[in-house]
């Protein structure tokens, strides 16, 4: 019983805590495609995910021509 409880606790803690203590830059899930030039495919996926493909911040500037956070242009 103790082993099962420990395993369950470990899994839950890993699922909840791991993203909080992650050392990786705060890039949201699903935008790792965005390294490199902004091709039409990248733009298409960007519209789907609605995060800047370069700095990963929410597309607060869209549909303007540049990300308001990092300045990346996609026109």
């Amino acid at each position: 019983m103790v082993v099962l409880a420990i395993l369950l606790t470990a899994a839950v803690v890993a699922l909840i805590v791991a993203p909080l203590v992650s050392q990786s830059p705060e890039i949201p899930y699903g935008v790792s495609f965005a390294r490199g030039p902004i091709t039409p495919e990248v733009l298409d996926r960007m519209l789907d995910s609605r995060f800047c493909p370069v700095c990963a911040s929410p597309l607060a500037g869209y549909p303007s021509e540049a990300c308001r956070v990092c300045g990346t242009r996609w026109d």
Partner: peptide, 17 residues
């Protein structure tokens, strides 16, 4: 965004539990 990821983990933990 990291908190959101953690919440996502929380939901998976809920399913597991």
């Amino acid at each position: 965004l990291r908190w959101q990821e953690s919440v996502r983990g929380g939901v998976m933990a809920l399913t597991l539990c």
